[in-house]
Amino acid sequence: MRPLALLPATACALAAAPAAAEEVVITVTGLRSAEGSVRACMTTQEDIFPKCIKDPASHRKVVKAADGTVTIRFTGVDPGNYAIALLHDENDNGKADRALGMMPKEGYGFSRDARVRMGPPDFEDAVFEHTDGRQDLTISMRYFL
């Protein structure tokens, strides 16, 4: 078989291939210490946000905390509507610690810097659209105590 005979078949196969997934890069600002880690979770599932650990398809990362700012990079992100929840897990125990049963003792943040009022924000307050290519977001860490 001649190599040029394969060219049309290869071109068709490449044209049918799905678009490559891209990345979301988050700059987290306002960290009050370098203690512990910053846990990030990004999901498309409105009904479980912000507990996206319940979404097996969610994007999750844990990075070492730093004074002021850290960067978190999610790769292989398909186009869609996403929301991000962040936790500055200062004691690195893997959970959000609370005072008096409900007030967060550690830092938190959400995409679109969605505000917390009597509980975490709704998905619709934190949702953003990721189309393709690289998308840069900035999320400010907040501390209640």
Rank of each mutant, 00 (worst) to 15 (best):
L6W: 12
L6H: 11
L6E: 15
P8V: 11
A9F: 15
A13L: 15
A13D: 11
A16F: 13
A17M: 14
A20I: 07
A20F: 06
A20K: 14
A20L: 13
A21Q: 14
A21R: 14
I26L: 12
I26G: 02
V28D: 00
V28Q: 02
S33R: 03
G36C: 06
G36R: 05
S37R: 14
V38S: 03
R39L: 13
C41W: 07
Q45G: 05
E46N: 10
D47H: 11
D47Y: 13
F49M: 06
P50K: 08
K51H: 12
C52F: 08
C52V: 09
C52P: 07
I53V: 13
I53M: 10
D55Y: 05
D55G: 04
P56A: 08
A57E: 13
S58K: 07
R60F: 10
R60A: 15
A65N: 04
D67N: 15
T69P: 01
T69I: 10
T69C: 03
T71K: 13
I72H: 01
R73N: 04
R73P: 06
R73Y: 00
F74T: 01
T75G: 06
T75N: 11
T75C: 00
D78T: 11
D78W: 01
D78G: 04
D78S: 13
P79K: 07
N81I: 10
N81P: 00
N81M: 07
Y82V: 12
Y82G: 02
A83I: 03
I84E: 00
L87E: 02
E90L: 09
N91C: 01
N91V: 07
D92L: 01
D92Y: 05
D92W: 07
N93Q: 10
N93S: 05
G94C: 04
G94M: 03
A96D: 03
A96H: 09
D97S: 09
A99M: 13
L100M: 12
P104V: 05
K105F: 02
Y108T: 06
F110C: 02
R112I: 07
D113G: 07
D113Y: 07
A114H: 09
A114G: 09
R115C: 00
R117N: 13
P120A: 10
P121R: 01
D122K: 14
E124H: 13
E124D: 15
D125C: 02
D125E: 12
G133Y: 09
G133S: 09
R134Y: 00
L137D: 02
T138W: 06
I139A: 04
S140H: 15
S140G: 07
M141K: 06
R142F: 00
Y143M: 05
L145V: 11
